[in-house]
Nucleic acid binder design. Structure first.
Lengths: 276, 276
DNA sequence: TAGCGCTTGTGAACGCGTGCACAAAATCCG
DNA sequence: CGGATTTTGTGCACGCGTTCACAAGCGCTA
């Protein structure tokens, strides 16, 4: 009954794939061929123990990381799964299972050392090596992203900004000059940018996406409300404000509907149970 | 192997709940008590056919809606599940199942009428009644949201803007004057605002959230990187840029790792594992 | 050192979502 | 008018993710 961004954000389908969208709420679109696991999904066991971590677990690990960092600032040295889980809004069983994907770094009867756990999660998420980010489309949203600067707890360095608007090119935004989108492939390749963020109008998104791919970007975070087509090796995540609102709208409608229905005598409170 | 924003955005856990996070990719967190279904999850059948639509399906329906609207503009009158699904990036079986939650509005051997399908999906998503939206925190992101104006395909009317900054109060942004956050409860109640969008710094998010709830808001879209505590009847969805980037970072690391491992013969670094 | 209590880590079961495959239905064509 | 073709709608089975529940392990205390 409640669970929204299934798995946060949404998985964006590939043109070359026949399946799709996610759950875990989220976010909301998932797809895959093999198991949903992230590691090697080969039928046989994974030899190198890359450990197949469920996508949903990865998202939660990122949440734990932030909570842990807040706790560390408060001077906490150890945490129990109970404390960490309630602060993160998940149940403790799930939290422990998530942490088990990372490894066994807890002490039974005691809990986890905050700094050890933090380091291990960062290791698994690949945060030890900062991934360079490029933002394309310097409108309101692009500005917000460019200035996001230190993303909470360690930042992803924004190494390049792009826009079509000639008047913007050369202008520094958040301490970084804007380049023209025609230079995307060149600049991205030169600077070794791994992640591209698309904050352009929908019409421009696909062509920008193509250029980013051309520039060797491995992952794309797409804020434009379109379904991007990318080669299979490029990971795409989508954040869609309109869809988020529509999902909420659905919930509002549902609640209103239930309330209305309740008012009507007919009732039948039995099955429906919760009154909300 | 690929599927990110599980179910889009993420479900935000409740303080009073013991469970949690979502799927369906994007952002990522889900939780619930009963079945993940959205309708009444009572054991018995749902008498009033509120039809329990999976959260992930709701998110996809919103995507179909946008694709349909684009097709309508191109003059399409009917669509087959195959066309619509490939344009939406899902497989046709899933699409048909999703549409079956809405009802049976297709014609076998022919397909779906674009306008009929559009109308029915809008009905199910509750888009026939426009939900009023308030945006809190008029920084870069808030500006972007306030100007988002016509969200692609029908807009959610932004009926109020709020900020703490006294210099901003009264200033029109996107054609609407900014009010002070202290007035949130009053204004929201007066204007019957159903959805609140939080685009404030993390530190202010919880208190803003409390005021929104106080003002009678039913759903909250949270862009601040914090876990909000809300009463059970308030639906919260979260969009977390930092987490999105971290998830992508994880994928980048994984790919790099695989590439590296393939190159190195010895391999099997045992414990420390990944080379990063 | 032995016992007790607390917390981790995980095996197993449940449930939801996904994908397959086919029957039902409607149109088209001969 | 009957058969071939196309496409919907769905029953069923598989699989992942969540949850439960408990054994294992560690520290503290007597």
């Amino acid at each position: 009954m409640r669970d929204s961004n299934a798995s946060e954000g949404e998985r964006v389908p590939r043109s070359d794939e026949a399946d799709n969208a996610p759950t875990a709420e989220l976010p909301a679109v998932t797809d895959r061929n093999g198991p949903a696991r992230t590691g090697r999904a080969a039928p046989g066991v994974d030899p190198n123990r890359v450990r197949a971590i469920p996508e949903a677990a990865v998202a939660r690990l990122a949440v734990y990381l932030r909570v842990l960092s807040a706790m560390a600032e408060h001077g906490a040295v150890t945490v129990s799964s109970e404390e960490l889980s309630s602060a993160s809004g998940v149940n403790s069983a799930k939290l422990r299972k998530d942490l088990s994907y990372v490894g066994s770094y807890g002490t039974r009867g005691v809990g986890y050392e905050v700094d050890v756990l933090t380091a291990e999660i960062e290791r698994v998420l690949g945060l030890t090596r900062k991934q360079k980010v490029a933002v394309v489309g310097i409108g309101n949203l692009g500005h917000a992203l460019a200035n996001y600067g230190g993303f909470p707890g360690r930042g992803f360095p924004v190494e390049a900004l792009f826009d079509v608007d000639a008047d913007l090119v050369g202008v520094p935004v958040g301490g970084m000059p804007v380049s023209h989108i025609d230079d995307i492939p060149k600049v991205c390749a030169q600077r070794g940018i791994a992640i591209g963020v698309i904050a352009t109008p929908p019409a421009a998104a696909q062509s920008v996406c193509d250029r980013l791919v051309q520039g060797g970007v491995q992952c794309i975070l797409n804020f434009a409300p379109v379904v991007l087509r990318t080669p299979p090796h490029v990971e795409v995540r989508k954040v869609d404000l309109a869809i988020e609102l529509q999902i909420l709208s659905f919930h509002v409608a549902r609640k209103t509907e239930q309330r209305t229905r309740r008012r009507v005598p007919a009732a039948r409170a039995s099955s429906n149970g919760e009154v909300v």
